[in-house]
Amino acid sequence: ENVVSAPMPGKVLRVLVRVGDRVRVGQGLLVLEAMKMENEIPSPRDGVVKRILVKEGEIDDTGQPLIELG
């Protein structure tokens, strides 16, 4: 899985990584606010952040691509 998608609709509060960062499975990639709760979205695998497809403050839909890993 190279693309991390939104598991729920919500607002992107914080992006915790930058392009080029090495990430490990379970590491937080970004924080979504949904139903007044903050949810940290973890990396599904080890890899390198290739692209960040959303910006802080954006509203996303379920299934929307958020981050691409390489």
Rank of each mutant, 00 (worst) to 15 (best):
E1C: 15
I67H: 02
V4P: 03
R24M: 10
I67R: 01
D21P: 00
D61K: 14
P9E: 07
V49C: 05
I52M: 02
I67P: 01
I67V: 10
R14W: 06
V48C: 12
E33L: 15
K55T: 12
I52S: 01
G26R: 04
E68S: 06
E68R: 05
D21F: 07
V3N: 06
T62S: 10
R45N: 06
L29P: 00
V12T: 03
P7H: 08
G47D: 03
L16T: 03
D46G: 08
K11W: 07
V23H: 02
G20S: 04
G26P: 01
A34E: 05
E56V: 14
M37R: 12
S5V: 15
V49K: 00
V23M: 00
R14T: 07
K11H: 06
L66A: 01
L66D: 00
N2A: 11
R18W: 05
P44C: 06
S43R: 02
M35Y: 13
V17L: 02
K50S: 09
L66K: 01
A34P: 01
P42C: 14
A34H: 15
P9L: 09
N39L: 15
E58C: 10
L66V: 05
N39W: 15
I52W: 02
P9I: 08
M8D: 02
R22T: 11
R51G: 07
G70K: 11
A6V: 05
D46E: 09
E40P: 07
P42I: 13
P7E: 06
V17H: 00
P7D: 06
R45H: 09
E1F: 13
V12L: 06
L32E: 00
E40T: 15
G63W: 07
E68Q: 08
V17M: 00
E33S: 09
P42K: 15
M35A: 12
K50C: 14
E38F: 10
S5M: 13
L32N: 00
V17K: 00
P44Q: 04
M8P: 04
L29Y: 02
E1V: 14
P65Q: 07
V54S: 05
E38L: 12
V54K: 05
P42V: 14
V49H: 01
Q27E: 07
M8I: 09
R45Q: 09
V54Y: 05
G70T: 14
V49D: 02
V48T: 09
L53P: 03
K50E: 09
E58G: 06
Q27I: 05
V3A: 06
V25M: 13
G57T: 05
A34Q: 10
G20P: 01
E58P: 10
K11F: 08
V25S: 10
G57M: 06
L32C: 04
I67A: 03
D60Y: 15
V48I: 13
N39H: 15
D60M: 15
D61T: 13
E38S: 09
L13T: 08
R18Y: 06
R24N: 08
Q64V: 11
L32G: 00
R45L: 12
L29K: 00
V17I: 06
D21M: 09
V4L: 07
V48H: 08
K36Q: 13
P42E: 08
V19T: 07
D60H: 15
S43W: 03
L13C: 07
G57L: 06
I59G: 05
E56G: 08
G28A: 14
V3M: 13
L29N: 00
P7S: 08
D60T: 15
V15Q: 00
N39D: 04
V15W: 11
K11A: 05
R51K: 12
K55I: 11
L16F: 05
Q64A: 13
R45D: 04
R24I: 11
E33Q: 11
R22E: 10
E40N: 07
T62L: 13
I41A: 01
V4F: 04
T62C: 11
L69T: 01
L66Q: 03
I41S: 01
R22Y: 13
I59L: 11
G28V: 15
L69F: 09
N2I: 14
L53R: 04
P65Y: 06
L30Y: 05
R51T: 09
G10Q: 03
N2M: 14
P7K: 09
M35R: 10
K11I: 11
K55L: 11
G28K: 09
I52A: 02
K55G: 09
A34W: 15
R51Y: 09
L66M: 11
M35F: 13
G70V: 14
P9S: 12
V12Y: 01
S5L: 15
G57A: 06
V19G: 03
P44M: 05
E40G: 04
G10H: 04
N39A: 12
L53Q: 03
P44A: 03
V23K: 01
G10L: 05
K55F: 12
T62A: 14
I52T: 01
M35V: 07
K11D: 02
V49Q: 00
I59H: 11
L53T: 03
L30V: 13
L53F: 15
V19M: 05
R14C: 10
L16V: 04
V17G: 00
E58A: 09
L30K: 00
N39P: 02
I59F: 14
D21R: 02
Q64E: 09
V4Y: 04
V17D: 01
G26T: 03
V25T: 12
E68G: 03
V15K: 00
M8R: 09
L13M: 08
K55E: 12
I52K: 02
I52L: 05
R24W: 10
E1M: 14
G26K: 03
E58T: 10
V4W: 03
G47C: 07
R14L: 07
D21V: 06
V31H: 02
E38C: 12
K11R: 13
P65S: 07
L32H: 06
I41H: 01
M37P: 02
A34F: 15
K36A: 13
A6Y: 06
V15Y: 08
P7F: 06
R14K: 11
R45M: 14
M8Y: 15
I59Y: 14
R45G: 05
E56I: 14
N2W: 15
A6T: 06
E38P: 09
D60L: 15
Q27M: 07
G63T: 08
G20C: 12
R51Q: 11
D61W: 14
V49I: 12
V23D: 02
V54C: 14
L69R: 01
P7W: 07
D60F: 15
A34N: 13
T62H: 10
V3C: 13
R18T: 10
K36R: 12
E58F: 12
P7T: 09
E40H: 09
V48K: 05
L66S: 02
E56K: 10
G10N: 03
L66Y: 03
L32A: 00
D61Y: 15
K55Y: 12
G70Y: 15
G70F: 15
G47P: 01
D60I: 15
G63K: 06
P9F: 09
G10I: 06
L13V: 12
L13G: 01
G28I: 15
V12M: 03
E38N: 08
K36N: 15
I59M: 12
E40A: 08
P44I: 05
G57I: 06
V19Y: 03
L16Y: 06
L66R: 01
V54H: 04
R22Q: 11
V12C: 06
P7A: 08
G63Y: 07
D60K: 15
L66E: 00
P9A: 13
E56D: 08
I67M: 11
R18A: 11
L13I: 13
K50A: 10
N39S: 11
M35D: 14
